[in-house]
Computed example of a mutant assay.
Amino acid sequence: MELIKTSLRNMLETNRKASYIFFIDIIYQIAKRMCYLHDMHIAHCDLKLDNILVNIEEKKVVNKFIEHAIVKVINFGISKIEVSSNPKTIENNHIYGTNVFSFAMVYFKILFKRDPFDDCRRDEILERIERDERPKLPSNCDELTKLIKECWNLNPLHRPKFAKNYERLIIASSTTNSIK
């Protein structure tokens, strides 16, 4: 069994100096893993920082060492299997939509180094979500913040599927390579 050194939560708390591209790659890998699960008709149902493990490796590239993360999604204890084979399609989209919403919260935390609802009490979070209130997003990375907004749409049926998130992250990361 592979030894993974840290959770994404611990990595974010201790590794604040990593590059923007390093973090975009982590988001990309999470989307890729979730896309695979959905292709296999599995809804994770508990995507959060503690259920994402990260190994950081250093690689030498042209006389310079760069860090690269390897991401694993764990804890399938409350996952749903054979989701798409269930005839209740709307409910299936809702289950997958919940994963996409959770992805947006993780995505926000990675990019902006803070919890999405850190300005309110825990018992207020659900009320704010139901009122369609979301944290303010910076305007300096339009495509990425647009994707977050779509992923945390109040209606699960209007959230993009992970395959679409994955494609858009590829495009967004290639157009934002100069952002640090």
Rank of each mutant, 00 (worst) to 15 (best):
E150K: 14
L47M: 04
E13P: 06
I24C: 15
C141K: 10
S173G: 06
D142N: 14
I90Q: 12
N155K: 12
S178H: 11
S174M: 09
K88L: 15
T175E: 14
Y96K: 09
F162C: 05
M34H: 01
R122C: 08
L37A: 02
V54F: 05
L126T: 01
I125A: 03
N155H: 08
N92F: 02
S79C: 02
K109V: 05
K72L: 09
I90Y: 02
E133C: 08
N177H: 10
N165I: 15
L144R: 02
I78Y: 09
E13R: 15
V61G: 00
R16H: 01
E143D: 15
L12T: 05
S84N: 15
L37K: 04
H94W: 11
H68R: 14
K32G: 03
K109Y: 07
G77P: 00
Y36Q: 13
I56H: 07
L49H: 12
V73R: 11
S84E: 13
K60V: 10
N153W: 01
K180S: 07
I66T: 11
N93G: 01
K32N: 12
K80N: 14
N93E: 13
I110F: 09
E127Q: 10
R33K: 05
H68F: 11
N155G: 10
K136Q: 11
S7I: 05
E13A: 14
A163H: 10
N153G: 04
N93S: 02
R114K: 15
V54P: 05
N93T: 00
K88T: 11
I95C: 07
K180H: 07
P116H: 06
S178Y: 09
E133H: 08
I74R: 03
Y96V: 01
V83G: 02
H38G: 02
T98R: 08
L37D: 03
E57L: 08
K60C: 10
K146W: 12
E133V: 06
K149P: 00
P87G: 06
A172C: 12
T89A: 13
S79M: 00
N86T: 09
F76Y: 14
S84T: 14
N10W: 10
I110R: 04
N140F: 08
K113Q: 06
F108K: 02
V73F: 04
N75W: 07
E67H: 13
R134P: 03
Y28I: 02
I30Q: 04
N15R: 08
C35V: 00
S7M: 04
T176R: 06
G97R: 01
H158F: 13
A104S: 15
N155E: 15
K109S: 13
P156C: 00
K32L: 13
W152Y: 04
I95L: 12
C151D: 03
Y96L: 08
T14K: 14
N51T: 07
I125P: 05
E91C: 14
T98N: 11
L126V: 02
E2P: 07
L49C: 13
F76E: 04
P116T: 00
I56C: 07
L169G: 05
E130V: 07
D115N: 10
T89H: 15
E167I: 09
S19V: 11
F76W: 04
I26V: 15
R131V: 00
I171R: 13
V54M: 07
F65S: 14
E130Y: 12
I110Q: 06
R9F: 13
